[in-house]
Amino acid sequence: MRAVALLIALACTSEPIPADRAFGPAVPDLTAGSDATSRHAVTIHVPEGLGRVTFQAPDGAVHQVPCSTCHGPDGLAERAADPARPFHLGLTPLPAGVEPPSGALSRRLEHGQLQCAACHSSGDRDRLRLADGRELPFEDVVTLCAQCHGPQYRDYQRGSHGGMNGYWDLRRGPRTRNSCVDCHHPHAPAYRPVMPVFPPRDRWLDSSTKTETH
């Protein structure tokens, strides 16, 4: 059985994702046009630390440990991350200012009913796995998310979802786009509430007074 799994894994890795699937058709669509050759690139930002758990050792040192350090095809493969272990605290984000709880429940995956193997390759923990069994590197996570989140992916392709920087006019300069996991933690993707930055201040009123409302 293990050999079969290994064979499948090998078969998957030997079939690379075509270039146009890697990020989906987003980039070609955005740059399409009569003078497409003269357009600048749209780069998708890849956050650091993908596929790694940020772990603070008892001596205070911070390590980034790849999943494959412990979870390989031969061991711990199907074992869910033990939420009670401090090692796995970095798997899900904590709201700002909240101390890590000792209880196990709050450290569960908060992504529907998904388990590790839904997105991670069982054979190679350093790669992701699409629903059809094909594997892809962590950098191509947008393609993975797009499997289930079609409307968001469509909006992302069309520039109406997800932050960006650079040029609106790609004939004059490049653009950088956030990837899904820049803003949505893959293990707890709901956007966390944030504190707003400063409000306007009416110079005629005491700062404690309400400012104008329209």
């Binding site: 979802h161 997800g162 932050g163 040029y167 609106w168």
Partner: peptide
């Protein structure tokens, strides 16, 4: 050809300019 400052600052990508 650059994007406006408010769009670049938007963390969710709520703004579309062109």
């Amino acid at each position: 050809g650059q994007l406006p400052a408010c769009l670049e600052a938007c963390p969710t990508g709520a703004r579309v300019f062109g």
